[in-house]
Amino acid sequence: MGKLWPTWDAFIETGKKYTAATKKAFVDNAGTSVFHQAVNQGPQKYYDPSGNVVYSTSPQVKTAFDLALKAVQAGITAKQSSFSDGWSAGIGKDQFAVISAPSWLLEQIRNNAPGTKGKWDIATIPGGAGNWGGSYLAIPKGAKNPKAAWDYISKTQSPQGQLAHFVVTGALPTTPSVYKDPKLTALKDPFFSDAPTGTIYTNSLLGLKPFYIGPDSSAIGQELLNAITNVEQGKGDPAKAWDSALANIKTAIGK
């Protein structure tokens, strides 16, 4: 299936054909499934390596933004924001065909739509490599037992610890040393038509180019996402979306 969409433009074209043939939406939404994925595929996002904010000039950001608007205007999105009530319900009702899903999201699809078992498959994301973001662990200064916290973190985040987590919960390991482990490569998911979840996700990770993130990365991303959602829900003017997103970011972070 991944062959149908080597690039995002091909993805949108495929979507148009699907929507024309079935009269149904192709992808759940443009914000998280297109923009948020495409923007994470470049070598530079909102910050440059020396920590300056460059969101307004970074070519990757504008490209991803325009791709998302293109998907909206192609009419292939179901306008269901990720994790909304309608989105959760839509998964089980064939309301849309495609979701950009990192490995941890699979669990949610299983839970939301148990009746769709075997109807899904997993394909490589357009553009080849995916990254939805990540989480951070911190031990606060005032922690009662920082040593125990550190030991716990070290244990659970060790390569073997992460591998064990992945097998059970789908949280993708950040430690390439286990990517060849048979426990990972042998992993298949019957819910998703026996897709080789272990190799698909780790391969997409290896193709990823690292970029710098900064203190306001998430605020910047949120404003851009909001602007796309606003157009998608039919309230915003696509021609003004980029400028208004930039203005909102400036108000929010002052830069």
Partner: peptide
């Protein structure tokens, strides 16, 4: 607005 509670929606 469960998705963006602090702003009561995307915009």
């Amino acid at each position: 607005s469960r998705l963006s509670p602090l702003t009561c929606g995307p915009v």
